[in-house]
């Protein structure tokens, strides 16, 4: 039964190309989201999907586990609010300026973190992110400290769409942005740069001996992922209006790793699927129980022990060519001490 379906899926995928299949599947999933969860939560899912997609560049394609991406997400959110408060009146100036500024920071942090690899890299990214958290928390005059901050009322009409006033319009805009970034990331992953990145993921030593400046490639991947995370954070601030320093805390850094893993690291659709499942799951959990940490922990343990390839990885193993997921498995087995 499964093998018969698998053959058909495989031949279909061969005909249309896996990338197109992924794109169409994502589009279909996005299309049913507002009906499934309501436009507000659907927008939340899309924001997290953008975040996870950015994160996936460094984890899934670069092969390095960052535990500090909440810093870029949170700074994106704070940056957009602070620049609207003090510098610009237009959202469409504030967002790009914020993203550029946070990207610059991610270059510095990336440079520092990439002095080491593997476990050290994870710990250093975590510590640097906590540094940002502490600063935002302490600098209460500017950031509001533990009270958080809220976005000033702004007009943000795009043609006929009014994303600030209409939740469904917001969802359209953020989905369009997601699809745009999806295409961009797909393009990057298939570019010569993306191929070198994959080579580094498979064997850093070999890539180094082939003459590639490994640090530079990884830094570029890290920066891209920081930039996309910052953009996601900026949109998050617009969506939720109110933000608190917990956006910069390591909890969120962990959550984006989990989202990416649930969906499937190193895949294009994985981050979207992961954030759909994660947001649905966490919303349901917080509604039905006060003790979501226990279930969250159990879910992480279950996924890591049983299905580290994630949903897309599992589907791929079942239905598609094994080749691509082979490299994912390599990534999972990598960094063995």
């Amino acid at each position: 039964m499964i093998s018969a379906v698998a053959t058909r899926v495989r031949s279909f995928s061969d005909r249309v190309g896996e990338l197109r299949l992924a794109f169409v599947a994502s589009l279909a999933l996005i299309a049913i989201l507002p009906d499934l969860m309501g436009p507000f939560i659907a927008s939340h899912v899309m924001v997290m999907a953008i975040f996870a997609m950015g994160y996936n560049i460094i984890l899934g394609f670069g092969g390095e586990l960052s535990f500090g991406h909440a810093a870029y997400f949170g700074l994106g959110a704070y940056g957009v609010i602070l620049s609207l408060e003090h510098l610009f009146s237009s959202l469409y100036v504030a967002i790009p300026v914020t993203v550029v500024a946070v990207t610059a920071l991610s270059v510095v942090f990336g440079f520092l973190s990439l002095r080491r690899r593997g476990i050290y890299f994870a710990m250093i990214t975590l510590a640097l992110a906590q540094l940002v958290y502490v600063i935002v928390f302490q600098w209460a005059d500017l950031t509001g400290g533990s009270n958080g901050a809220s976005i000033p009322i702004t007009e943000a009409q795009i043609g006929p769409l009014a994303p600030m006033n209409n939740e469904l319009h917001f969802f359209f805009v953020v989905s369009a942005l997601f699809l745009l970034l999806f295409a961009l990331v797909a393009r990057v992953v298939r570019s010569p740069f993306g191929r070198v990145l994959k080579a580094i993921r498979e064997s850093e030593e070999r890539a180094l001996h082939l003459g590639y400046d490994v640090d530079k490639y990884l830094l570029l991947a890290f920066t891209m992922s920081g930039a996309i995370s910052a953009l996601a954070g900026a949109i998050y601030a617009v969506l939720f209006v109110f933000i608190s320093p917990s956006l910069l805390f390591w909890q969120l850094s962990g959550e984006v790793v989990i989202m990416t893993i649930i969906g499937g690291i190193g895949t294009l659709t994985g981050p979207l699927v992961g954030s759909v499942v994660f947001i649905f799951f966490s919303n349901t959990l917080t509604r039905v129980t006060d003790h979501w940490e226990i279930f969250f922990g159990l879910v992480i343990i279950t996924i890591v022990m049983l299905a580290p390839e994630g949903i897309i990885g599992l589907l791929r193993n079942t239905f598609l060519d094994e080749n691509e997921s082979f490299s994912i498995r390599r990534l999972i087995e990598r960094l063995r001490p």
Partner: peptide, 28 residues
Amino acid sequence: YTYGRYGALLQLLLTFGVAELLRGSVIF
């Protein structure tokens, strides 16, 4: 069950899950 099967990356995530579970249990 992770020795030899998974690298340090997943072991780290596993202990992250354990951390959540432990904290959740303490709160419980």
